[in-house]
C-alpha cells in the first residue's frame, strides 16, 4: 500500500515536472493555481489542522508577502525569486507579533484576533499610500516566461508538503496534535504548549509569505482588495478541512479536488461560489470532520504519515 502510494506520487511529480514542455498556457496557469492552493492550504494545516487553533486571517501573510515581493522588485530592483522568498520575513514577523499575545490564551481569542488581522493589515496598506500605492496598487513588469514561476510555485507546494511530513513524523508534530486533542492535559504532561503553538504559527506563516510574492510577480499587478480577500482564507480552510486536517496529503487532495470543481462548475458566479463554500464548511464540520484522508486513514488503518 505505502509503496504503491509512493510510486504514484513519484509518477505524478515526474509528469508535473515535464508539463510545461508541452501543455497549453491555460493548463500551466491552472496548475500554478493548484500549486498555490496546496501551499496555502498546507500552511493553514500547520497551525489550525495540527493544533486546532483556527486562523481566520491567514490571507494576511499572503498579502504581506505579495506587497514585500512587489516592492522589492519595483523599488529595490531585486530579481523576482529572492524578492518572493523574502516575503516570508515580514510574514513571520507579523505572525510573531500577533501570535505571541494571542496564542498564550486558550479559547477563541486567537481565532477572533486573526479574523480582525486581515482587515487591519489591508487598512494599513491602503493608508500608507506613498509607500504601497494605496488603493491604486502596484504594477510589476510583465513576465516573459511562465515556466520559472511554475517551478517556483511547484517547489513551494512540495516544500510545504515535505515540511508537513517531517513535522508529523516528529515529536514536535505529536505535541502539536496533543494540543488539538487536549491542551490542558498536554500542558500538564510537561509540554510547553504556548511555545509549540508559536512555532507552528511561525512555520505556517512562512510559505503564504513566499507564495504571495510569487503571486504578485505572476499576476503583474496587485492592489489591497486583490491580495487580502477573505475568500482566500475561506478557500484555504475548506480545502484543508475537505482533504483532511492534520494529515500530510489532505491539503493536497483538497486543493486539487476543489480547484478542479471550482474551475469546472462555479468559478463564474462569485457569490454562488462563496455561498457554496460556506455550506461546504458546514457540511464537512458536521458530516466528515476528519476529511477525506482522515476517513481513509481510519477505515484502512493507514499510518499517520499518509
Amino acid at each position: 500500500m505505502m509503496a504503491g502510494i509512493l510510486w504514484l506520487l513519484l509518477a505524478v511529480m515526474g509528469g508535473l515536472a515535464v508539463l510545461p514542455l508541452f501543455a497549453s498556457g491555460y493548463i500551466i496557469s491552472f496548475t500554478i493555481q493548484i500549486f498555490m492552493w496546496i501551499a496555502l492550504a498546507g500552511s493553514w494545516n500547520l497551525i489550525s489542522g495540527f493544533t486546532g487553533y483556527v486562523s481566520f486571517g491567514h490571507v494576511a501573510f499572503f498579502g504581506v508577502g505579495a506587497y514585500t515581493g512587489a516592492l522589492l522588485v519595483t523599488q529595490a530592483g531585486w530579481h523576482w525569486l529572492p524578492a518572493s522568498l523574502a516575503g516570508c520575513v515580514p510574514a513571520a514577523a507579523l505572525a510573531l507579533l500577533i501570535g505571541y499575545p494571542c496564542l498564550r490564551l486558550k479559547g477563541p481569542y486567537f481565532a477572533i484576533a486573526m479574523l480582525g488581522l486581515n482587515e487591519v493589515v489591508r487598512a494599513l496598506v491602503s493608508y500608507f499610500e506613498s509607500f504601497t500605492g494605496g488603493g491604486s496598487g502596484i504594477s510589476l513588469p510583465p513576465i516573459l516566461s511562465i515556466a520559472p514561476v511554475y517551478y517556483a510555485m511547484g517547489g513551494a507546494a512540495v516544500a510545504v508538503t515535505l515540511l508537513t511530513y517531517r513535522i508529523i513524523t516528529s515529536r514536535f508534530g505529536l505535541r502539536l496534535l496533543s494540543i488539538r486533542e487536549d491542551e490542558i492535559a498536554a500542558e500538564t504532561m510537561g509540554i510547553n504548549t504556548s511555545l509549540m503553538k508559536l512555532y507552528a504559527f511561525l512555520l505556517s506563516a512562512l510559505f503564504p509569505g513566499i507564495v504571495g510574492g510569487l503571486y504578485a510577480w505572476y499576476s503583474s499587478y496587485i492592489e489591497p482588495l486583490g491580495v487580502f480577500p477573505l475568500l482566500t482564507t475561506i478557500t484555504m480552510i475548506i480545502m484543508c478541512l475537505f482533504g483532511g486536517k492534520g494529515t500530510v496529503l489532505g491539503p493536497v487532495l483538497g486543493a486539487v479536488l476543489l480547484s478542479v470543481f471550482q474551475e469546472l462548475v462555479w468559478a463564474r458566479f462569485l457569490f454562488v461560489h462563496q455561498a457554496i463554500f460556506g455550506a461546504l464548511i458546514v457540511a464537512v464540520v458536521l458530516l466528515m470532520p476528519r476529511g477525506i484522508m482522515g476517513v481513509l486513514q481510519e477505515r484502512y488503518r493507514l499510518p499517520r504519515t499518509v
Partner: peptide
C-alpha cells in the same frame, strides 16, 4: 485527571511518545 484526559485521536503508542522529553522518537 478525575475525568480521563487521553489524546483521543492519537494512538495508544503516540499518547506515550508525545510526552517523552529526551531522545528521538
Amino acid at each position: 485527571f478525575q475525568i480521563i484526559r487521553v489524546f483521543p485521536e492519537l494512538t495508544a503508542l503516540e499518547n506515550l511518545l508525545v510526552v517523552s522529553r529526551k531522545g528521538g522518537l
